[in-house]
Design a protein around this nucleic acid. Structure first.
Length: 280
DNA sequence: AACGGAGCCAACCGCCACCTG
DNA sequence: TCAGGTGGCGGTTGGCTCCGT
């Protein structure tokens, strides 16, 4: 525990910390301090740089805005595709996604996802509703800017509904139950509490295996980048069925087959080409 | 020109894990 | 062992900007 500062008191601690947007002067102070002194305890950084900010605020400002290695500007199509792929595997683990996108921050990626990509997924959902109301093929041209022609919505819908029937979709991930009128959660929303262990379907396609047959899994988070991973779904699914989804710790996984995350990410797959297996 | 809605994004909030005295 | 400080993270919010009417 850090010792309380000499002369500190309740009244001192209540001393008003500034909130809100950072002024150019504050940025300059923080930047200069970080360059000259480097990162230490953030509350000390705030104090020593003469900022009326809490340490947390300084840390956030530095990480998200002032850091010299930050990449500015819009996301490239390549970055965009990577984000989508990583998110399908990692879910909302923004910091882990950011760690794989040099120069990008978790906040940036989170904002990008919540504004741009979520909007697309909603469009996809709307499109799928159209599919259910007519037999004509949907226009999926907006799903991705390069490869979207092979989306098989009916298969996806069927698979999602099948998943739901089996209890493998956590209602907390979908605002409403999956029905013919609302059949289409985003792929990552299938992520019931076992999302860590669900993996994209990588043998040339991209999606989620809803057959739950045991061959597909995502490596545990504690694995290091470049490691080989392995896991087996069978025992896990059996446990899920016994205990109910949500009660199975990830540690219950049995290891059987390895995946390489980097290889997985670099796999040449057509974006948004889903090929779901039907449950048996 | 004024207004309102939508979208974007910087920053805050609350929680949690870890550390240290 | 415990209490309190700190850092890290994901979710959320509020304000600014843009755009259509």
């Amino acid at each position: 525990m850090r010792k309380p500062e000499v002369g500190s008191s309740a009244t001192h601690q209540v001393k008003k910390m500034k909130k809100g947007l950072w002024s150019p002067e504050e940025d300059s102070r923080l930047m200069q301090y970080m360059i000259s002194s480097g990162q230490g305890c953030w509350s000390d950084v705030a104090k020593n740089a003469g900022l009326q900010r809490c340490g947390k605020s300084c840390r956030l400002r530095w990480i998200n805005y002032l850091r010299p290695d930050l990449k500015r500007g819009a996301f490239s199509p390549q970055e965009e595709e990577l984000i989508i792929r990583f998110h399908s595997i990692l879910g909302n683990r923004w910091s882990q996604i950011a760690a794989r996108l040099p120069g990008r921050t978790d906040n940036e990626i989170k904002n990008f996802w919540n504004s741009t990509i979520k909007k697309r997924l909603k469009k996809m959902s709307d499109t799928s509703n159209l599919v259910n109301n007519s037999s004509s093929s949907p226009d999926t041209s907006d799903l991705s800017n390069n490869t979207t022609s092979s989306l098989e919505l009916k298969d996806i819908i069927g698979s999602f509904m099948s998943l739901q029937e089996q209890g493998f979709i956590n209602p907390s991930f979908t605002n409403t139950p999956i029905t013919n009128n609302n059949p289409f959660p985003a792929p990552h929303m299938i992520s019931h509490p076992c999302i860590d262990d669900f993996t994209p379907y990588v043998d040339g396609l991209y999606g989620v295996n809803t057959g739950l047959q045991g061959e597909l899994y995502f490596p545990p988070l504690e694995c290091q980048e470049g490691d080989w991973y392995k896991a087996d779904i069978n025992s896990h699914v059996a446990e899920m069925k016994t205990n109910g989804a949500g009660n199975v710790p990830a540690e219950s996984m049995r290891v059987e087959e390895y995946w390489d995350l980097d290889q997985l990410m670099s796999t040449e797959v057509p974006s948004f080409h889903f090929n779901f297996k039907q449950s048996t």
